[in-house]
Amino acid sequence: MTTIASALADGAVVAKRNLLKIARVPDLLVFSTIQPIMFVLLFAYVFGAEIVIPGVNYREYLMGGIFVQTCIFGATITGSGLANDMKNGIIDRFRSLPMARSAVLIGRTTSDLLNNTLVVVIMALTGLLVGWRIRTSFLEAAAGFLLLLLFAYSISWVMATVGLTVSSVEVFNNAVFLVIFPLTFIANTFVGTDGLPAPLKVVAEWNPVSAVTQAVRELFGNTPSESAVSDAWPLQNPVLASILYMILILAIFVPLAVNRYKKAASR
């Protein structure tokens, strides 16, 4: 077997193990879907009444942002799953086996991608219930969902790196939310970037989260009128910018995560 084929075969064995866990501990999936549903309802009904984005129904505008935020939250299970495996010594077992070095990470990120797909489907259904509509062609909509899942996948590798670096699942959860909240709120997730104070505005305009959110809004046809979108390059070319950001994230974090895995020592 070639190296790549063998890594994929080993990855499939690991992915199957992770998926069995999702099936056996369904509470995990229940909680990872309740949270985004809650966000949709909170923003649609609590803040939605007060927030006005010119040229678009706020609930439609909102969905793109919540989709992206949910994908980032969903990707955290990659890190907490790995941190947990480290604690239990299972990573040690894997590392002592003659399997591909990248297989545990390939398996983990793949099973988490499937998990995230399910979460996105449930969110989309919730969105449709509160009045979100796709106003573009089938192909554009499909491209929108694909972009979301690829983004979730690349964030999974960031989370994998963090999960293999910290000492416990608890530390992972605390550390990661310190990053995730500013990352998803200093962006165009819930409101436009134009109202932000100058330094924050620049951060928000160049935040990958904003690019992906804008891209998804365009692909679903939920964009506000022209004037309401910042003229920063990533927001003017959001699909291209999103793809570039993902390539950059993967180029940095895939080698970094594999390297952390090789060096990972339990406890």
Binding site: D10, L20, K21, N88, I90, R93, L97, P98, M99, A103
Partner: peptide, 28 residues
Amino acid sequence: IGLSGQYAAVDENLTGYENLDMVGRLYH
């Protein structure tokens, strides 16, 4: 080699059989 560490490194959510079969598959 075969290694059995200080704490039982088996997956709680899998059955005993699934644990061993997974290891067997990873030994190819």
